[in-house]
Design a protein around this nucleic acid. Structure first.
Ligand SMILES: [Zn+2]
Ligand SMILES: [Zn+2]
Ligand SMILES: [Zn+2]
Ligand SMILES: [Zn+2]
Lengths: 147, 147
DNA sequence: TCTTGAACCTCTAGTTGCTAGAGACATTAG
DNA sequence: CTAATGTCTCTAGCAACTAGAGGTTCAAGA
């Protein structure tokens, strides 16, 4: 049995985050020692490692919740799992696209800046006037999530 | 003079967001009509358009605050402006790198999934075991900001 | 055995950039 | 004149944590 600190050390998830996951019921309520401290076994360690890895791959906690409950149904078809993963992939792809557009605009304004007074700075100028941008699609980005 | 709704319509920034910007002092306190409604002139419109465009390019409100106060100093050197923009560019670039790694891992696990039972699903398997990943650098991502 | 210090406990509040809602007042078109 | 829309303030909520206060438990050294 591991204390919360050991569990944190062996998964790379911080102690308060583990408590937070318990609070939002992503992890089950931990067993307690005589002195009321949390104790964890292998199954929670596995579960937390899964969560950690999925977080690292950008899945939301909600998606992870679904993935976890699916993985408790080993005989089910994995179609639903793949739907979640594919959705995540397309999110990642669209963020890359958007960021690439931003990168181009940022590079462009930095190249055009000649390093003089602010009154003549191309960066300030472009920020004040989107029509100076080369692409228009970085506007109205609707929803942008983390990562 | 524009009402808040007109200002919102002509900048693409939502009404509550404008009020929020005033609250955090990114916009100055607006003049008021006889009936206590906010009224805006050209200068606030310009300022808000600047904010909007900078947000679209991924700058944080803090960075925008700095950019705005710099742009009020037209005779200063634009070096500080360029530092902010360059920092933003490198943030964008590192996010693209990270997302590209994620994309590769997600694609890989989706390709390897043969669409059978969850017990055999490669997606679930990889999520549970990072050593099945091709790259290790998507772990411990430190800080990830919005976009 | 005692004592110190690290690790643990609970609870609240803060972060970023908004968004949603309640309940009341202002303005405007028909 | 009235009805509909717009605006006002205020509070609370979102994701996914993080930080801190103030207190308890545990493990190791003297
Ligand atoms: Zn410049
Ligand atoms: Zn633009
Ligand atoms: Zn599968
Ligand atoms: Zn991995």
């Amino acid at each position: 049995m591991l204390t919360i600190g050991k569990l944190a050390a062996s998964t790379g998830v911080k102690v308060p985050t583990i408590r937070y996951y318990e609070q939002i019921e992503l992890l089950p309520e931990a067993d307690r020692s005589a002195g009321n401290q949390r104790l964890y076994g292998q199954s929670t360690l596995d579960r937390l490692a899964f969560i950690r890895h999925a977080r690292d791959l950008g899945f939301t906690l909600d998606a992870i919740r679904d993935l976890l409950s699916l993985s408790d149904q080993p005989n089910h078809s994995c179609a639903a799992v793949d739907v979640i993963a594919r959705k995540q992939l397309s999110e990642v792809e669209s963020r890359i696209l958007r960021l690439t557009t931003l990168k181009i605009e940022l590079e462009r304004m930095l190249i055009q800046c000649s390093g003089g007074r602010i009154a003549d700075c191309r960066v300030i100028e472009v920020l004040g006037d989107h029509s100076l941008c080369v692409s228009s699609d970085h506007c109205h980005p609707k929803a942008e999530a983390t990562l």
